[in-house]
Amino acid sequence: MHVGLALSRVRTDEKALMRALSARDHEVTRVDVRDQQFGLSSLPAALADCDVVLDRCLAASRSRYLTRFCERCGVPVVNDAATAATCADKVETSLALSAAGVPTPDTEVAFTPDAALAAVESFGYPCVLKPVVGSWGRLMAKVDSRTAAEAVLEHKETLGHYEHSVFYVQEFVDKPGRDLRVLAADGTPVAAMARSADDWLTNAAQGADTTPFELDAAAEAVVADASEAVGGGLLGVDLMETGDSYVCHEVNHTVEFAALDETVEVDVPAAVVDWLETSVAGADAQGVTA
């Protein structure tokens, strides 16, 4: 299998993937997307002959376009463009989850600070303001009062980028000091961990403590449904426990797994390669019979 690894920054995750692929004698072509030009009907030569391109772009904007160009040129890409577009935007993710009946925190979107403030007041305090694009817990605000809401909304409006004037307001879920990260391949969990912190943000990138987590049937069902809702593929599905059930608050399409790999006994990069081999073989078989 010839795998194109499209990236810019090389993280621990990408190095681990390259090692796991090379260990199975797969050919890996690493392409820094910052050096490339993408025509309307041709991929950069380094990617054009790949059996599959792995989108490992750090920037969501690059990821969204890279995946579109791959599909335009008939080169399979993981994850696909529709999944990337859905997961790169929290509004799109919430809409997809809701439409599929996946339990997800109640969310409202507004286009002006006044309308957003009304949404905040309707949720009551605390509630959460999130940027529609972003990761690692950046620019997330837990809003505890009307004055705090007014300040955050004013700051967002003046940040400059138009996306900050799309106000994404969400109920605050009183989780038990942790959330859950599940790496799933086409809806099947590869491994899961709990991320715990004293802070309300429990992202591994924010320094949360991680421990292995054994999923029950209810959690597995939410993961499978969330994966299907955004188009499947290799995903980082984030869940919060709500007592007797779970809600899915985020699905990541260029999932980082270094923290998970350090936490669980599963060889995560090897499991990713297992899934990739099966997926590419399945796509080839479909192509033969089509």
Binding site: R9, A59, P131, G134, T254, E256
Partner: peptide, 23 residues
Amino acid sequence: LETVEVSPPVLQRAPELAEDWGE
């Protein structure tokens, strides 16, 4: 610092974190 050459290693200041970076 970002590695821009490997043999021998050459480093340059890495790009600033952008708003759409992440997973």
